[in-house]
């Protein structure tokens, strides 16, 4: 199988590391060779962050460049727009509708772009937009947006739900598992 590339993008602190671990775990269980590339350190402090997940028969480079991604999972609208250039023709975006103003917007040097979803669709991208933040709060914590989005993505991939549940068990600490299961279920229903 040709290597598939997924990008998980968002704002540092939104929980992309957990999302990439869940996804990587699911893919490994399916018998693929998997590489997940994370960013730690300074960019985690509220900056634009990206995690790459690649899988296939043989995966070499852990990074994804412009024009190479099959799917982008985004925790924040502006970040979906920023990284959309990395999608292949016919690629998909699953994004939260949450918006977080970056510092140039806060200081008034720039304004938060409008019409992002329409623009992305105009680029020929298959866009699924979900209010993951509200669903996460419904599940018990705003921090579970990442797992809500994993729920949404799970419907778009051909793997049994049991595999995802097993990955959740392996990646989430026991005391948060119930809340995260609920978040995942809300994502699947969205």
């Amino acid at each position: 199988m040709e290597t598939k590339s997924i990008m998980i993008v968002g704002v540092g602190g939104q929980g992309s590391l957990l999302a990439s671990r869940i996804l990587g775990n699911v893919l490994l269980q399916q018998g693929y060779e998997v590489k997940v590339s994370e960013v730690h350190g300074m960019s985690q402090r509220g900056g634009s962050v990206v995690t790459y997940v690649k899988y296939g028969d043989a995966v070499y480079s852990p990074v994804v460049e412009k024009g190479e991604a099959d799917v982008i999972i985004s925790f924040e609208l502006l970040e979906a727009a920023r990284w959309a250039v990395c999608l292949k023709k016919g690629g998909k975006i699953v994004t939260s509708t949450q918006t977080l103003d970056p510092m140039p917007v806060i200081t008034g040097a720039a304004s938060y772009p409008e019409g992002i979803i329409e623009n992305l669709k105009g680029m020929g991208i298959d866009v699924t937009a979900v209010d993951a933040l509200s669903l996460a709060e419904q599940a018990g914590s705003a921090k579970a947006s990442n797992v809500v989005l994993m729920g949404v993505v799970s419907k778009k991939m051909d793997f049994d739900e049991a595999v995802w549940q097993e990955a959740l068990n392996q990646c989430v600490p026991p005391k948060f598992i119930e809340m995260n299961r609920k978040a995942f279920a809300l994502g699947r229903e969205a």
Partner: peptide, 18 residues
């Protein structure tokens, strides 16, 4: 690779103090 850019300039998001 074939690349389709986003049609507008986007504000940057540098890291910030939490």
């Amino acid at each position: 690779p074939e690349v389709t850019p986003y049609p507008e300039q986007l504000p940057i998001r540098p890291p910030v103090m939490c």
